[in-house]
């Protein structure tokens, strides 16, 4: 039986890729007085729901989405979490 899963996907720049936006934000935070701030890196967050037969299927689908479109492996890494959507959660999603 198929089931709806909620996925939370984090796409981050590979450590070897210079992140000038992160550097600019780091300098802004330091000017605000957060002098201990270092290594700011800015990435992307994607959330979506997907219909899948089970946990493994949901993970496999999301992994392929990341690999083929949501992240560019040349410059980015990704990680994600998937969770089956229950009735009470889906109300929360639409609210």
């Amino acid at each position: 039986m198929s089931q709806t899963y909620q996925a939370q996907i984090y796409v981050t720049l590979r450590p070897s890729v210079l992140d000038p936006a992160g550097t600019a934000v780091e300098s802004g935070l330091q000017q605000l007085g957060f002098t201990g701030v270092e290594r700011v890196r800015i990435g992307k967050y994607v959330e979506l729901t997907v219909t899948a037969t089970d946990d493994a299927d949901a993970k496999q689908q999301v992994d392929q989405m990341c690999d083929r479109l949501l992240a560019n492996p040349t410059i980015e890494n990704y990680r994600f979490e998937v969770q089956a959507v229950t009735e009470s959660m889906s109300e929360g999603v639409t609210a």
């Binding site: 210079l18 000038p20 600019a24 040349t74 410059i75």
Partner: peptide, 17 residues
């Protein structure tokens, strides 16, 4: 052309934004 894989590498945000 880089996204489709005809050329290697990627074009990212300019150094000075």
């Amino acid at each position: 052309l880089t996204e489709v894989g005809l050329l290697p590498g990627a074009l990212v945000r300019n150094r000075d934004l």
